[in-house]
Design a protein around this nucleic acid. Structure first.
Length: 135
DNA sequence: ACATTGACTCGCG
DNA sequence: GCGCGAGCCAATG
């Protein structure tokens, strides 16, 4: 009698492959990053690095991109509000994703020139005080 | 097990 | 502005 058959008989299916995916996937850092992204206001934009920092993960900008990619459309995150630190769209110019992001930004009233957003203007202000003290 | 590859960023020349 | 290297690190081949 096969071991797998015995296990199945006992109502136990596939234990081994599972453990790792749970440990590897979706760690607390990922959730923290998604939470921060979800709070970016409409009409604003910010950088991967800024999100990482706000999520308590300085210098982890790449992880933000990864999490965003893993999340997919079902997550309903405002991924289009996330840009490189210099304001440029991170996708290759002209690509499907690039055009989609540009369109979504424009739709929110964010000015995009040559695939680039002026973060001085549309950046995510930390709070009203900083906004008032600027200049 | 090792090398490459990114939805990245920053400092230096 | 631009290239380079370093830091970043999980996924992929």
């Amino acid at each position: 009698m096969l071991v797998s058959a015995c296990l199945r008989e006992a109502g136990v299916w596939y234990l081994a492959p599972m453990a790792k995916s749970v440990a590897t996937d979706d760690r607390p850092e990922h959730a923290a990053i998604r939470r921060v992204i979800a709070t970016i206001p409409r009409g604003c934009a910010t950088s991967y690095g800024e999100i990482a920092a706000r999520a308590g993960l300085p210098r982890r900008a790449r992880l933000v991109g990864r999490v965003l990619g893993d999340a997919g459309p079902a997550a309903k995150l405002p991924w289009h509000r996330v840009l490189r630190s210099d304001g440029r769209i991170a996708f290759p110019p002209g690509s499907k994703a690039f055009r989609e992001q540009r369109a979504r930004l424009l739709d929110e009233g964010v000015v995009v020139c040559n695939g680039k957003v002026d973060l001085q203007r549309h950046g995510w202000q930390r709070d009203l005080d900083e906004q008032l003290w600027r200049l």
